[in-house]
Lab assay of single mutants.
Amino acid sequence: VTLFVALYDYEARTEDDLSAHKGEKFQILNSSEGDWWEARSLTTGETGYIPSNYVAPV
């Protein structure tokens, strides 16, 4: 399991995006899409895309 933590708040801009709150942890499901990674929030269980530069490894 690849875990990352949000460094900043991010507000989803499309229905495919996933909002993130600073300190929230995510499981990365797919990081092969360049700057946008598919992730699952460990807080809400929701999945979507987050900007890779907004997260760091735990």
Rank of each mutant, 00 (worst) to 15 (best):
N30V: 08
V55G: 02
E38L: 15
A39T: 01
V58C: 11
T44K: 03
E24S: 03
L42I: 10
S32Q: 12
V5F: 10
L7C: 11
A12T: 04
K22F: 06
Y8I: 06
L29F: 08
A39V: 15
Y10V: 06
E15C: 14
A56P: 01
S32M: 12
S41H: 03
Y8S: 06
L18G: 01
L3I: 15
V1F: 14
A12K: 09
H21D: 04
A39N: 00
L42G: 02
N53K: 13
S41G: 01
Y54K: 07
V55Q: 01
E33C: 15
V58Q: 06
F26C: 03
V58L: 13
T14Q: 09
D35R: 08
N30H: 07
Q27N: 06
K25I: 15
Y54H: 08
A39S: 02
T44S: 10
S31C: 15
V5A: 05
N53F: 12
N30G: 09
S41R: 10
S41M: 03
N53T: 11
G48A: 02
L7G: 01
I50Y: 01
Y8F: 12
D16W: 15
S31T: 13
D35H: 11
R40M: 12
A20W: 06
S19T: 10
T44H: 03
L18K: 00
K22P: 05
E33N: 15
I28N: 00
T47N: 04
S52K: 15
T44Y: 03
I28W: 03
A56C: 12
A6V: 06
E24H: 03
L7R: 01
E38T: 11
A6G: 02
V5P: 00
E38G: 03
S31A: 13
A56V: 13
V1I: 13
G45V: 02
L42S: 03
V5D: 00
S32D: 10
I28G: 02
G34L: 10
G34P: 14
T14G: 15
E46I: 10
V1C: 15
Y8D: 07
S19I: 05
D17P: 01
E38Q: 13
L3P: 05
D9G: 04
I50H: 02
E24L: 04
F26Y: 04
R13Y: 07
T14Y: 14
G34I: 10
P51Y: 09
E15Q: 12
G48W: 05
S19N: 10
S19A: 08
T47F: 07
N30L: 07
E46T: 07
F26H: 00
L3A: 05
I50V: 06
A20D: 00
L3M: 10
L3Y: 13
L42Y: 06
W36P: 05
W36C: 12
Y54S: 11
Q27Y: 14
T14R: 14
A12H: 04
Y10G: 00
W37C: 05
S32N: 10
W36T: 07
V58F: 12
L18N: 01
A12G: 10
A20S: 05
K22L: 06
S31F: 15
R40L: 10
E11Q: 12
D35G: 12
S31W: 13
E24W: 05
Q27L: 14
G23P: 00
N30P: 04
I28Q: 01
A39G: 04
E33Q: 14
T47R: 11
D9H: 06
L29K: 05
Q27M: 13
S32Y: 09
Y54M: 15
A39I: 06
S52Y: 09
L42M: 13
A6H: 01
T2C: 15
